[in-house]
Design a protein around this nucleic acid. Structure first.
Length: 252
DNA sequence: ATCTCGATAGTCT
DNA sequence: GACTATCGAGATC
């Protein structure tokens, strides 16, 4: 009943969450429309924000989908209502983040595979434990380099907190670092601090974890479809989506 | 640039 | 016991 937490001020700072109706559609449509949208995670450590640049759709009627063989404790969130997070643990060490789509009772979701870091790069770097090779072969934390504003002896001019300008936003060094930070589903979860705790969380209620519509006119709007990555079954379905020319993508 | 491989633990057969 | 919606290191071209 107490309205003291000032959600109002947060609301003014941050874009609004996508509504539940956005997610209540088939996963392929949602996967395409999530491109250029903005992933936001507010934690006690700080805020991380990224522009979604690669997605994959998974439908229950799809051998590659975790929900294909029915509901289990692990995939339960996929069968819940649309607009909630499905976070799973895989390969003994990585988490992957999905947005649940479609009707309640149906196991559809969209995997977020890559984002372009927009805010909180230093925090992302720290969470990722990112290190770089200095010239002498000595290892330094990229975060420390960034904090000092130091320029590395090598070619990598690290500016993890730099102002994002149009001219420099996609400079080769910036893209390389971005891909280290959030160029893959496991990297996103690590960089954004997403793990078991976020499984089943509502993405539509302006809570800590949410997805908002693009805040500005997207630079790229042409959508490309390709086979999904890292799966064996139904590998031919072109349900991986990226934006033509966008360098902020995962491997291969 | 592209490849192969190992790490590591939860889930399902 | 096998498999995994991954990642990073190391080898090789």
């Amino acid at each position: 009943m107490s309205a003291d937490a000032s959600p109002q001020s947060r609301h003014e700072r941050m874009p609004m969450s996508l509504p539940r109706s956005f997610y209540q559609r088939d996963p392929v449509a949602v996967a395409r429309d999530l491109l250029n949208c903005v992933l936001i995670h507010e934690t006690p450590e700080g805020v991380t924000i990224g522009r979604i640049s690669e997605t994959e759709a998974y439908a229950q009627d799809d051998p590659a989908c975790h929900a294909f063989r029915g509901r289990t404790p692990r995939n339960a969130a996929m069968f819940g209502p649309a607009g909630f997070a499905y976070v799973y643990f895989t390969y003994g060490m990585h988490f992957c983040f999905n947005a649940v789509t479609g009707e309640e009772g149906v196991g559809d979701a969209v995997l977020i595979r890559a984002v372009e870091p927009l805010h909180g790069r230093e925090l992302m770097s720290r969470r990722r434990g990112l290190t770089i090779e200095a010239k002498q072969g000595e290892k330094h934390e990229a975060e420390q380099e960034a904090g000092r504003g130091a320029v590395n002896p090598g070619e990598m001019a690290i500016d993890l907190q730099g102002v994002r300008t149009d001219a420099e936003a996609e400079a080769p060094a910036r893209v390389r670092i971005a891909r280290l930070l959030t160029g893959g589903p496991g990297k996103i979860c690590k960089a954004f601090g997403i793990d078991r705790e976020q499984n089943g969380q509502d993405l539509t209620n302006d809570g800590r974890l949410r997805i908002a519509a693009p805040t500005e006119q997207p630079r790229r709007t042409v959508i490309e479809a390709s086979p999904r990555i890292g799966i064996r079954l139904a590998a031919e379905r072109p349900w991986r989506f990226t934006l033509a020319g966008d360098p902020f993508v995962s491997r291969r």
